[in-house]
Amino acid sequence: MELQIDIEAPTPVFTQLIEQIKQAVMKNRIHPGDPLPSIRQLANDLALNNKTVAKAYRLLERDSVIQTKGYRGTFIHPDAKTNCAVDLNGWVIGNLTDTIKSFRDRGVTDSEIRIAFSNVMNQREL
């Protein structure tokens, strides 16, 4: 199984990595329990910064597509195939759409929504 990234593509490199690993799981090209290369190895092979690969792995781990087992390395999660189908981004967009629609229905202007959104996002204790 081989990964291929395009450094000039409009999609960020870490997103390309996430999508390709998820696709590989969905298409049964990699299976639960299969080991993945270390962050350093993948970053060296793709001539990328370690942080880029680490970000992709962190997000995949958050989505329970992969799991890190300490010094033994990183593996495909046992429920990876089910978890790949979960579209967190779609869920966020759906919720935000409903919320913004309810604000507009009550007469809140777009600029007021933007300012309020920005203020909430900047709250440190959130």
């Binding site: 990964l3 291929q4 990234i5 395009d6 290369p37 092979d45 001539a47 990328l48």
Partner: peptide, 11 residues
């Protein structure tokens, strides 16, 4: 080339 390839298995 702008594309790069890597094996998805540990060495």
């Amino acid at each position: 080339r702008t594309t790069r390839k890597a094996e998805l298995s540990p060495r």
